[in-house]
Design a protein around this nucleic acid. Structure first.
Lengths: 241, 241
DNA sequence: TTTTATTGTCTCATTTAATTACAATAATAC
DNA sequence: GTATTATTGTAATTAAATGAGACAATAAAA
């Protein structure tokens, strides 16, 4: 095991025991909705990025901190959506495999083997700006389309499912100024984001009229892509006053 | 101090440290939306009913257990809505007052004086069926109209505010089969529930047409109240198939 | 029998949304 | 140049939902 990463392992005294968080980080590559999944060293275990809360740290700050570490971004749309608290979600056997693959033998009393309650968040980020960075326990962190996720450990598949469900429910009400697109985008791109989130096709004219009617977009120059058809306008979200 | 209640104090070994829950229990008395607030022994401190999670207990089960103890009910509409995790929400000074008012001197190392993260739930219950019962630390538990709450300790006012906000947001989408009414109710009563939750008056004819159009109500016999006017029908929510 | 307050249901106007239609374009083919 | 093609922006038309009254049908009291 590589000593450097072992040194970065979270230390019992620094963190609140029994409390964790997990993040479902959504990105949009122009066609698909994807999420960031990490793979632990030498275990073939896939998981959501997550972490622990320092003794004197606000829960929300802890999540923001780890998202900054995983993505390099600090302006992201972040929303807490559920706290998972079943006893069955804690799997000391799996945690032990992860820890031992990373740093050799681990005592059965290790704090990370105890029961954890996990507060789950989802984040919406600009796919193009992200520099995914694995954490101390992981080999890799990569984008996976939500339709083609690897098998996730513990209850992380349930967490993803609920994240998508909440995202759908919140789409109309809360997050029109979605962070999933670059600063400037076409109406078609915005429509595609709505379609992949809702999982259904929308009518072009209805969608366009509705969004424009909300008066939340600013129109910019046209985007000439060299295709043999009318060039679409670029839009950006208006700054909130 | 009364020895019996002191004996019921939660014991450090039985519970998950640093994890708590609080419940906003809504009831409707026919005119107002109310919530259950308890008052701690000899402290003039008012708080939401809450509690702690046993080492081997699911979070949701812990909440159900305590709601059963506080209200006598086990069939209630219960929804988790947010987890409060700021460091500033923990107030060892206040907790110490509560504990000492209950059982004499308390060590500064007492587990209840440490930082807690609280998972907040709201419940909708049938006002008439409830038998409010204080917990070990409390003198009383009583209904307060949401417009006339006593000053609540720590961040409990914020928790109530967010509960009401979530209830409003969820009214149309989720909980048409509200638990706030008795089994049979008049259209006017249902409208009043909507009005107190939304905080606005609704048009009688529009409301009636909309609700009946949803096809979720069953019509029963008329309710004769002895008033000099046409008697309204009673309705109940259709059983979900 | 008349009066009063309230309920259940219609009607009609108004608003909002869905659907269709069509002109405007940006590049390509000729 | 001019016709062709795919796509975009918007207007016109239909359909659906909602708002605002109108009104007959009560249940009890005057």
């Amino acid at each position: 095991m590589n000593k450097e990463s072992a040194l970065k392992l979270p230390n019992a005294e620094e963190y609140l025991p029994h409390v964790a968080y997990d993040s479902v980080i959504f990105g949009f590559n122009g066609r698909q909705l994807k999420i960031l999944i990490l793979e632990y060293h030498n275990t073939e275990l896939f998981a959501l990025p997550g972490g622990f809360v320092k003794i004197n740290e606000n829960l929300n700050d802890a999540v923001t901190r780890s998202l900054k570490e995983r993505t390099g971004l600090d302006d992201l749309y972040l929303e807490q959506f559920y706290t998972f608290g079943d006893t069955s979600r804690s799997r000391p056997d799996i945690m032990k495999r992860i820890l031992e693959a990373n740093s050799g033998a681990v005592s059965n009393e290790h704090w990370l083997l105890s029961r954890f309650i996990s507060v789950a968040y989802y984040a919406l980020i600009n796919y193009e700006e992200v520099v995914p960075t694995p954490d101390a326990l992981s080999d890799s962190i990569s984008w996976y389309p939500i339709e083609e996720l690897p098998p996730l450990m513990m209850d992380h598949e349930l967490i993803v499912k609920r994240a998508i469900q909440t995202l759908r429910e919140n789409l109309e009400r809360k997050l029109i100024g979605i962070n999933l697109l670059p600063n400037k985008f076409t109406m078609k791109e915005l429509q595609m984001v709505y379609e992949v989130i809702l999982g259904e096709k929308l009518r072009r004219t209805t969608f366009q009229r509705k969004i424009l009617g909300l008066d939340i977009l600013e129109r910019h120059e046209k985007l000439f892509l060299g295709t043999a058809n009318k060039a679409p306008f670029l839009y950006s979200f208006k700054k909130r006053p």
